[in-house]
């Protein structure tokens, strides 16, 4: 467990649209939590503005003072010129690390300052990763489709040490679109959305016609209804992943974080944590991608 104890915990960027007070409450709690790294910023939709730029920067300061390492995340899908302008502002902030979630942000950062490669960049082999490392990538958040076997091989082939971060707990981000599916469910267009996604703090459930929880709609983003849980990583594969990412959700984040923290300190087992946290995964758990299977499969717990 000595290796696992040095594994750091990260809180990923908030994927959902929450009222300002709820966001403030989340990050105040995180300031007092065992999380080491916090990703801030809106990554899904530029129309979500409960937090303005000033609020993000103030939150970054609050978390830095609490000893957290802070990273600003950029939009996963960039469409409007105004969105590009905002990404440029983030990339040129001069102080806080940036997670690049599309190639626009990579272009703004490449060769200038070190950056984090986000999970929505298309990086699935060593040659691609090496090229981005040459341009300043220092931490890589592994894309959801990547299996453990692929990551092991990429890591073995890489000449330079970088940090590897993996989504350990949270719904998987599966797709982005120009269309807002939350607005579509309300029979309105994106331009008239009135930020209706704020009514769905964990996204809007999409079920099959036989009532199976299948996907979750979150504005222009489509997510898995199941919660990805690859915590067994902490027990069985020391040295493969340096940072475990936890994705914020509306439920009891304290208990999720404390369980995973206990796991990295060897005070509990992955199976026990998965069992205890199942209540926070209403659509069930999955870990298929990590085991080289269909993403929705639950290999470890089945």
């Amino acid at each position: 467990m000595s290796n696992a104890a040095t594994t750091r915990l990260a809180l990923g960027p908030l994927q959902f649209h929450w009222p300002k007070a709820q966001m403030q409450s989340l990050y105040r709690k995180i300031a007092d939590s065992p999380v080491d790294i916090v990703y801030l910023g809106e990554t899904v939709c530029s129309k979500r503005r409960e937090f303005r730029h000033k609020d993000w920067i103030e939150t970054a300061e609050l978390l830095s003072e609490a000893g957290k390492s802070v990273v600003l995340s950029t939009f996963a899908l960039v469409e409007a010129q105004s969105e590009l302008g905002y990404i440029r502002r983030l990339c040129e902030n001069g102080e806080i690390w940036v997670e690049a979630n599309d190639m626009s942000a990579v272009q703004m950062l490449a060769g200038k300052i070190p950056f984090v490669g986000g999970p929505t960049l298309n990086v699935v082999n060593q040659r691609t990763l090496q090229k981005l490392v040459d341009l300043g990538l220092q931490r890589w958040v592994v894309p959801v489709e990547l299996s453990r076997a692929m990551l092991v091989e990429i890591r073995r082939e890489m000449a330079e040490p970088i940090e590897y971060e993996l989504l350990a707990w949270g719904r998987l981000s599966l797709a982005y679109s120009a269309r807002c599916y939350t607005a579509r469910a309300h029979r309105i267009s994106k331009d008239d959305c009135a930020n209706c996604c704020i009514d769905y703090p964990d996204g809007l459930l999409l079920q099959t016609r036989e009532d199976e929880d299948f996907l979750v709609i979150n504005g222009i983003q489509t997510m898995s209804a199941r919660t990805s849980c690859v915590l067994a990583e902490l027990e069985n594969s020391p040295g493969i992943v340096d940072i475990l990412r936890i994705s914020p959700q509306a439920g009891d984040m304290d208990s999720i974080i404390h369980q995973i923290d206990a796991l990295r300190h060897g005070e509990t087992t992955a199976d026990a944590v998965a069992r205890d946290l199942a209540v926070h995964a209403p659509g069930g758990l999955c870990d298929g991608y990590w085991h080289g299977e269909a993403g929705m499969m639950n290999v470890r717990q089945s």
């Binding site: 489709e145 898995s224 269909a294």
Partner: peptide, 21 residues
């Protein structure tokens, strides 16, 4: 394709095989 191409994992989520890989 209504999802941004190259970053849609819906098919691999269900089947293990998708457009990207």
């Amino acid at each position: 394709c209504v999802m941004v191409e190259g970053r849609c994992y819906l098919s691999s989520y269900v089947t293990g095989q998708g457009p990207n890989m």
